[in-house]
Nucleic acid binder design. Structure first.
Length: 565
DNA sequence: CTGGGGAGGGGGCCC
DNA sequence: TGGGCCCCCTCCCCA
């Protein structure tokens, strides 16, 4: 018995020793792993810094390769500008309640070195007299990781870039501007003039420097404001939409960068007013800085909304706006159509301004789609189709259309008592909630997140997928009471029932013929118009429908190719 | 050509 | 708010 007890005791001691050994090994390994992880993180940071420096170098080389002091408006920018500015005249001035966002874009280009330095964009709200329960703001969040002071990032375009025209004004440097100036900043010359002068140049580098939290620049009143607003750094660079959903928050990111050397930089400021639900954003060029009046033809940013903050300063991180050549962006038919619709929705006074801008900017037709599609995820961490960003842009650029549509009781936003504060940035349609507009925007983005498990087809909507799957299941829940015929879609049944009722709601305007189906009438009208776009390559015979040509070819020469003009 | 069905896209509404 | 449904429209195809 004693022997067994001793054995058990020895076993226990051995077991404990083994456990202790294992724990020690684990701890050691853990320490090693932690060390390795830490080293890897350091390496990552180092590499990131190198990458940033490389980007900066590339950007500077681009500047050197082009006319150093020149400024160019990003081509895709113009599309946005067009959409933006076209609405300016409709902005009937700043509401007294309207707070302002001031986009202070300080951009200087060193002609000697060809580098652009110390550019600042400040977004601040000013002049708000009234309060509102919420606010809407777009800010750029940045990683809080330590950054190289010289860090610049290329952004092809983006929400922020879209908000703030990449304007580099070489002569601006002659007019110092106090950094602490609290309100709308000065702008020399008209925007048109500036933009015009910028058109034919090749490269622009605009740097938006992020102002920082008050801990960085506690003496700066603007930063104090930032601090007062409780800036919180965000882990990722992202554009956010702040609407009524939450109290206004300003995100900043800590930057160890060099001071804002804006004292010697003349700022081009862009002012906005913010509406909690709508944030129309147009760019203001104040031609009369002494008065601070709003040029009715300038790109003033305002809304009729209100904010609960009288003054806010949002500072955009330093970024470098890479400006590309004048190569027109290509538009596919859909984009062109959208843009045409977008453009045509403007009233005549809008056109005045738009035309002028187009003249000055030599703006080709660019759909708003480009604005989004050209966001470069390489240089900004924003996803190309960031829905929030899109919505934001729409809020910014299309709210005026919304108001117009609502005002005249027409358009996509009419006929619904619900406030449709979420607007599609592509087509200006209004939706009552975020998800609706996100789903809708798949129309433009082509996103089809719902895939059929039976086939390769994908759909933008779940209900469409569900409907489609009846193809595979053979389910036809809609049956005709007259003939027992069954259909997979209710609309098909309804359409079919015209066979029984004899209803032919589609009548030809050229002849007395009537049709039960709209498609049949459409096809019939081609007979009247003589439209025969489908030509047989074999015999030259023309047909109004592709199917006719195909039938003809099958009869004549099955291998004949189809010529579609 | 005409008639008709299959199927997908999109908006609105309801729960 | 999100999912689902209804409805309308359109394109395509075939008889």
């Amino acid at each position: 018995m004693v022997f067994h007890t001793q054995i058990a005791s020895i076993m226990e001691v051995l077991a404990n020793a083994a456990v202790a050994e294992i724990c020690k090994l684990v701890d050691d390994d853990y320490a090693v792993f932690r060390l390795e992880i830490t080293q890897s993180q350091k390496e990552n940071r180092t590499l990131r810094r190198k990458l940033q420096l490389l980007e900066l170098k590339v950007a500077r080389e681009r500047v050197l390769a082009s006319r150093p002091s020149s400024v160019k408006i990003l081509d895709r920018y113009r599309g946005m500008t067009r959409g933006t500015f076209s609405r300016m005249p409709r902005q009937r001035g700043l509401s007294p309640r309207s707070p302002l966002l001031v986009f202070r874009c300080v951009t200087t280009v060193d002609e000697g070195s060809g580098t652009s330095t110390q550019h600042v964009i400040v977004i601040e709200s000013a002049g708000a007299e009234a309060a509102s329960p919420g606010g809407l703001s777009l800010v750029k969040q940045e990683s809080t990781e330590e950054e190289d002071p010289t860090h610049t990032r290329d952004i092809q375009t983006g929400a922020v870039a879209g908000m703030v025209p990449p304007v580099s004004v070489e002569d601006l440097a002659t007019t110092p501007q106090p950094r602490t100036r609290p309100s709308i900043t000065e702008v020399s010359g008209t925007l048109n003039a500036v933009l015009k002068s910028e058109i034919d140049t090749e490269t622009l580098t605009v740097t938006h420097r992020h102002l920082h939290t008050e801990s960085d620049h506690g003496s700066d009143p603007e930063r104090l404001l930032l601090g007062r607003l409780g800036c919180s750094p965000a882990p990722d660079s992202k554009y956010l939409l702040y609407g009524n959903l939450s109290p206004r928050t300003v995100h900043s990111h800590q930057d160890s960068g060099d001071a804002l050397e804006t004292g010697n930089d003349l700022s081009r400021s862009y002012t906005t007013a913010m509406d909690p639900g709508i944030m129309p954003l147009v760019l203001e060029t104040q031609t009369d800085q002494s008065r601070g009046d709003w040029n009715p033809y300038s790109s003033s940013v305002y809304s009729e909304g209100c904010l609960d903050k009288k003054r806010e300063v949002i500072v955009i991180d330093e970024v470098t706006v890479k400006v590309e050549g004048d190569v027109p962006l290509t538009c596919n038919a859909e984009e062109t159509r959208l843009w045409e619709r977008y453009s045509q929705s403007n009233t005549s006074d809008d056109l005045d301004c738009r035309d002028r801008l187009e003249t000055n900017l030599n703006v080709a037709t660019h759909s708003p789609l480009h604005v989004v599609r050209d966001r470069n995820p390489v240089s900004t961490s924003m996803a190309p189709y960031d829905s929030h960003g899109s919505i934001f842009f729409d809020q910014v650029f299309n709210s005026d259309d919304r108001a117009r549509d609502e005002g005249r009781g027409g358009g996509a936003t009419s006929g619904n008592s619900k406030e449709k504060r979420f607007l599609c940035m592509f087509c200006n349609k209004g939706f009552s909630c975020l998800q609706k507009v996100e789903i809708h925007q798949r129309v433009h983005t082509g996103e089809n997140p719902f895939s059929c498990t039976q086939c390769e087809k994908r759909f933008s909507r779940q209900d469409h997928l569900k409907r489609h799957q009846r193809v595979h299941t053979g389910e036809k829940p809609f049956s005709c009471p007259q003939c027992e015929k069954r259909f997979s879609q209710a609309g098909d049944l309804k359409r079919h029932q015209r066979v029984h009722t004899g209803e032919k709601p589609f009548s030809c305007t050229q002849c007395p013929m009537r049709f039960a189906l709209a498609g049949n009438l459409k096809m019939h009208l081609k007979v009247h118009k003589g439209e025969r776009p489908f030509t047989s390559m074999h015999c030259g015979k023309r047909f109004s429908e592709r199917s006719y040509l195909r039938t003809h070819q099958q009869k004549k020469q099955p291998s004949e190719s189809i010529h579609i003009p």
